[in-house]
Write a protein that binds this DNA or RNA. Sequence first.
RNA 1: GCCCACAUAGCUCAGUUGGAUAGAGCGACUGCCUCCUAAGCAGUAGGUCACAGGUUCGAAUCCUGUUGUGGGUACCA
Length: 572
Amino acid sequence: MWWCIFSVIPPAAFINWSGCGPMLPRVQLKMNPKKFLVRQLTEALARLGQTDTIPEVSPTRDPKFGDLSTNVSLKLTRALKRNPLEIAEQILAELDLDVDLFEQPTITKPGFINFTIRNDYYRRLIPEIITGGDAYGRGQTGNGQTANVEFVSANPTGPLTVGHGRQAVLGDAVASILEWHGYEVIREYYYNDAGRQMRILGQSVEARYFQELGQAVELPEDGYRGEYLREIARNLVSEQGEKLKAGDPIFRKAAEAVIFADIKNSLAGLGIHHQVFSNEKNYYDSGAIDRMVADLRERDLIYEKEAATWFKTTALGKDQDRVLIKSSGEPTYRLPDMAYHRDKLERNFDLIVDIFGADHQATYPDVLTALKILEYDVSPIRVLIHQFVTLVRSGQKVKMSTRKANFVTLEELTEIAGKDVVRYFFIMRGMNTHLNFDLDLAEDESEKNPVYYLQYAHARISNIIRHGESLGISFKDQYDLTLLTHPGEIQLLKQMARFTDATESALESLEPQVLATYLQDLATAFHKFYVDCRVITADQRLTQARLALIYATRIVLANGLGILGLTAPEKM
RNA sequence: GCCCACAUAGCUCAGUUGGAUAGAGCGACUGCCUCCUAAGCAGUAGGUCACAGGUUCGAAUCCUGUUGUGGGUACCA
């Protein structure tokens, strides 16, 4: 058994590490084992005359099958009409593997070839992570590119609800994932203060205003019933007295200002900040909306029927035509959406992400269709649809409605549960699940929220480090990693090695939840290590090696928590 | 009616692009603090992966149908 002292400072140490054990070809130190295997397998298959099959290499579920396995021989059984085990033997014979990176591969049952990566590979990760620090694991995919992430986009008719929370947290985390990979990201909020909703809101405030003045005025039929409108009305009375007349635009403007301030405040409470607020009204004023209709009309895709203006989507393979301008003369939401997306495309982002609730599922294809017809390249646009949150109270489903004031605000939830709990609650679930949110358990849940499991791991590490320092033991950049042989240590290392896979996977899918799942597993690996292996002991060399291990673990945890917008506490 | 999503343990949800014996938390039960934080660890119980077919070496995952839930289907966005 050889060993050597690793030096943390120069990253070059990984490349030029001759003198410390066996010399390794440079490529294998830089390339991840999975990609390396895919390449070597591809070459082996080529030598066997199989160029059509792309080998897949995936992590194994069970450690007894090693770290990585491939199913190529199973895939080839049909073409070759031979026993997969025989094929596996043949592939293995052709495979050019570096014995220093892998143990001897094995072939198991149906015909899998299993690869076990030598522990040295994992140990080398530690200095790399410590050197990288808070930049460790950052991707470069988006370097030099811009991205726009549009989310929340609720019209300012009332406070944000728990339902909006899902989109708010999701969008912010998606934006952070992009930033982690090098994108320059604009978080954007799109709203409409000129439409029917806002008009009714103004009328509702107006009614409340006159009610405050003792007049018997009814709320409009579809009016907003929230208590917050009474407050706005009361403020108007104290600021403006009794002079306001019916139809004054101040009712709507006052409501919008107050409500928007409240929305921004609720978002800030979750650590969410938009850089750009786009107002639909601008697209009317600039003529962009008229231009949209005119451009489509030029392509003979617009017609009038029953006093409405229609978009002839059936001519483009859709099942029915869509109304763009209602018989009342007001556009439907589709039309400004088209103009808005045209604008976003013209702003030349490399990536445009739209986060919509399930209620927009039918809309965006029409928007994309229109833009394609106008010869825009819509490939930068990625639409993420999330399902709704179902609120449950006393075992009953609660239908939320801003208008009927039947909702729980995001702010209330944040107050009782806390920012991290709320964020994690929404992040840990896939966006495509219809998730149930039990209001009765909201507070209770906050104490058992799995986010604490992650944060606890971080706090525990911090505590060990503090404990060491109190005994005069501090981390040094000289440590012997070969002392890390305990299964708990190796499992923890292996889990850390998956961090970049997790962030890359999150980037591809734009699903923050994969990172949350990863961090859960990492925390588990740490907690198990913690129980089995004491860090600060009389054995100075082992203590240093384990300190290095937990320093690295803390960095990965903190980086992952940071991407998700969660705090990494030093104490709990 | 038609279109789009979804259906996994009592509850809330994972499941790495079709892999090997389907996992975690909560709830229930049993152990573990003389020792760096027990917000932890180890274990028991709990499953017809909605149902029925199909595709193939192999299906919770892909296809078809059925049932159920959510959403949409100009005049709420």
